[in-house]
């Protein structure tokens, strides 16, 4: 149980008050674990099972069901490229090929230094900004192959995700998104 600090356990038990059963906080708990450790290993599953009062097998089932939970180590910068229809029509597949080439890895692999991993993802809800790519939680929309290469170079040079250019999904709303 050394995975969670007392403060975190306190936070989780506060969260559990918002649900009638502790098991309902399994997804939030797994999110916390993945943020801490990068992926959900055996030890993390045991911790989640204990906190949420479910069998470890249940946790394993849940982790394997949801694509965003990693059951193996991934890069610190997880590059996701959408190739679903709206993105495909506007060059998503070429973008994915460019990124695979740039990073020298295949789908769901990570670079030897553990910095990058890549995933061909399903629709991420950025169809109006197709083609799109995401690095961790940051969306890059209407992105060209050159710009995508620049994003990777930026991460390599500065060890941070660059700020994406603003893409209005609502052409009629001029307000810039608070990113």
């Amino acid at each position: 149980m050394a995975i969670f600090s007392n403060a975190e356990l306190q936070e989780i038990s506060e969260l559990q008050k918002r649900y009638p059963e502790p098991a309902a906080t399994l997804l939030p708990v797994l999110w916390r674990l993945q943020e801490k450790r990068g992926w959900i290993d055996d030890e993390a599953m045991e911790a989640a099972a204990a906190v949420c009062q479910v069998p470890k097998s249940h946790v394993q089932g849940v982790v394997s069901f949801y694509t965003m939970f990693f059951d193996k180590p991934m890069g610190r910068y997880h590059v996701q490229v959408c190739t679903n229809v709206s993105c495909m029509l506007r060059g998503g597949e070429e973008l994915l090929a460019t990124m695979k080439n740039k990073l020298g890895i295949q789908n769901l692999e990570h670079t030897p230094d553990g910095l990058f991993s890549i995933e061909e993802v399903e629709c991420m809800g950025a169809c109006g900004g197709a083609p799109m790519m995401a690095v961790n939680e940051t969306f890059f929309e209407k992105i060209s192959k050159e710009e995508a290469n620049d994003v990777i170079d930026h991460v390599l040079a500065k060890d941070e995700i660059p700020k994406p250019k603003f893409v209005a999904q609502m052409p009629e709303l001029t307000e810039a998104a608070n990113r």
Binding site: N84, S86, E122, C123, G125, C127, G128, Q169, M170
Partner: peptide
């Protein structure tokens, strides 16, 4: 998550 839908996101955002 339906491919082609990105409307609810605008409500969250705006």
């Amino acid at each position: 998550s339906e491919p082609g839908s990105f409307k609810d996101r605008q409500i969250f955002e705006f």
